[in-house]
Design a protein around this nucleic acid. Structure first.
Length: 508
RNA sequence: GGCGGCGUAGCUCAGCUGGUUAGAGCACGGCACUCAUAAUGCCGGGGUCAGCGGUUCAAGUCCGCUCGCCGCUACCA
């Protein structure tokens, strides 16, 4: 099986980590964990984007050298990976030496292949947005012109290197045609295609207006455009330009996870750069949606930014991870409502799953002396519980590999609900008096089901599911998908159960 | 303005190439159970499938129009 390479964007250090960062990385983390569970070799990369004029200015304002500044502020993103339980294999920073080497190597390769030329650009530029605006987009107050974003603009004219993006339109369209799953969700794919069809112009890929960036080889008056710099991180981390590096086998990436705001860079510019350099483009780019907060658009000026650390502190890590991927189809916008999270936590995690585990394990504890009952052939009545289990890993796997996290969770929880029906109908507490042998069989089947649920849920809720597997007596080396085929031996002593999820008050 | 999408139970949404009494979860009502985190199970109420017109033996499911939302884009980076 080929190795799997998954990436998040590198996050811009000028911002504080918020729910959006946590969300992108979480989706990546769950898929990475799933593939590992399935026995595949995985590399999960995240990191920080530390160059650009905004960072240079922010450092200046803070009275720090840019490197010292980014060393400090990028720490918040490294902290986030720990708080959120992310299993990233690497954390890349664009200020690393290896990254300068990769960027410059890529630049040279593009230049050698005639993909870069020197020109000049001019226009109304907003430092804050690092973007140019057309004259009709601007508004003027007190003699100063402002972009639609509210950022002040200034007229800039400077020499610049250009990438021959326009030459790659047909190749890009062809690539999308041959790889219909390259851009997801498919609605985004259509947008990208229509954008290209409306005409691509060459892309300015250098700046002379600031210094904080990767110098252009052979012309150090220029630094590289932030997006060329930033996108290159994905191959830097795999050892580029050393194509004999140990990690190079991971390239091309299987999925680049991005927010919908940066889809264009990943779905158009990035594959164009790579094709122009004769390197393989990534296999897939997934653009997810945005969160609102209690129905309100999130913005710094409204002051309703959601801090993932505060959420984890209040609700616990796994409920937050579960909610983010359960509540909204990945790819669509969603609303973060406290009440909705509490409903998922109390109504699904605690009542449906946690309670099922607790009642089952309590019965084993009390009526089987805490020993795991022997495996038994299923009776007809057990089919409803056990039959769906056989296809569960495959079903969940297919849904996750197409980034349909909410459907994967829905499938799992539909089965857990079914298991609650099974235990009610079988009533092992009543069998205790009438048919203790059957009681043990029923409890063993429930144990088998719980083990399967816990196993496939590990990527979503690593901590709680480890605890559940502990309570189920599943040894650490028997928690993979493959291990589900091997029943645990009977008689194993199970620890006394304790609740997996703590409910919270619905009003907060 | 151009391109694309959406509008289905109180809420969030499923409903593939048109075909039995339109489904799920949550919420609500009733019943059952009492092993369990006052948890669970079963049953039920509730929808002119945005509106109008058309194609068809048959339309949430296809076509046209209207209304209401949304996304991308609008002579350059």
């Amino acid at each position: 099986m080929s190795p799997i390479y998954l990436t998040t964007p590198i996050y811009y250090v000028n911002d504080k980590p918020h729910i959006g960062h946590a969300y992108t990385s979480l989706a990546t983390d769950v898929l990475a964990r799933w593939h590992r569970l399935a026995g595949r070799e995985v590399y999960f990369l995240t990191g920080t984007d530390e160059h650009g004029q905004k960072v240079e200015k922010a450092a200046q304002d803070a009275g720090e050298a840019p490197q010292a500044f980014t060393d400090r502020v990028s720490q918040a993103f490294r902290d986030l990976t720990h708080t959120m339980g992310f299993s990233n294999d690497g954390f890349i920073r664009t200020t690393e030496k290896r990254h300068y080497e990769a960027c410059q190597a890529l630049w040279k390769r593009l230049a050698e292949r005639g993909q870069i030329y020197l020109g000049a650009y001019e226009g109304w530029y907003a430092v804050r947005d690092e973007a140019f605006y057309g004259p009709d987009e601007l508004t003027e107050r007190d003699g100063v012109k402002y972009a639609p974003s509210g950022a002040p603009v200034e007229w800039v004219r400077e020499p610049s290197y250009f990438f021959r993006l326009s030459a790659w339109a047909d190749k890009l369209l062809e690539y999308y045609e041959i790889n219909p799953d390259f851009i997801a969700p498919s609605s985004r794919r259509n947008e990208v295609i229509s954008f290209i069809k409306s005409g691509l112009s060459d892309l300015s890929i250098s700046r002379t207006s600031f210094r904080w960036g990767v110098p252009v080889p052979g012309d150090e008056a220029h630094v590289m455009y932030v997006w060329l710099d930033a996108l290159t991180n994905y191959i830097t981390a795999m050892g580029y330009p050393d194509e004999n590096a140990a990690l190079w086998k991971f390239w091309p990436a299987d999925v680049h996870f991005v927010g919908k705001d940066i889809l264009r860079f990943h779905a158009i510019y990035w594959p164009a750069f790579l094709m122009a350099a004769d390197l393989p483009p990534p296999k897939r780019v997934f653009a997810h949606g945005w969160w609102t907060n209690e129905g309100q658009k999130i913005s710094k000026s409204l002051g309703n930014v959601i801090d993932p650390l505060a959420l984890v502190e209040e609700f616990g890590l796994d409920p937050v991870r579960y909610f983010l991927l359960r509540e909204v189809p990945f790819g669509q916008d969603g609303d973060f409502a406290r009440g909705a999270l509490v409903n998922r936590l109390n109504g699904e995690l605690a009542d449906v799953l946690g309670n099922l585990a607790n009642r089952t394990l309590s019965l084993i504890q009390r009526n089987c002396e805490g020993k795991l009952p022997a495996p038994a052939a299923p009776a007809e009545a057990d089919g409803a519980l056990l039959d769906p289990l056989t296809s569960l890993p495959e079903t969940v796997g297919k849904l996750l590999e197409s980034q349909q996290y909410h459907l994967a969770l829905e499938e799992i929880f539909a089965q857990v609900r079914g298991a609650n029906g099974y235990i009610t109908v079988q009533a092992p507490w009543a069998l205790k008096k009438t048919d203790p042998v059957r009681m043990a069989v029923v409890l063993r089947h429930l144990h088998t089901a719980l083990r399967a649920y816990a196993t496939v849920l590990q990527p979503f809720m690593p901590g709680s599911m480890a605890a559940l597997l502990d309570q189920l007596g599943v040894p650490p080396d028997a928690r993979s998908l493959a291990a589900l085929a091997l029943p645990l031996p009977e008689g194993h002593m199970l620890p006394p159960p304790s609740p997996l999820f703590r409910k919270v008050e619905s009003v907060g």
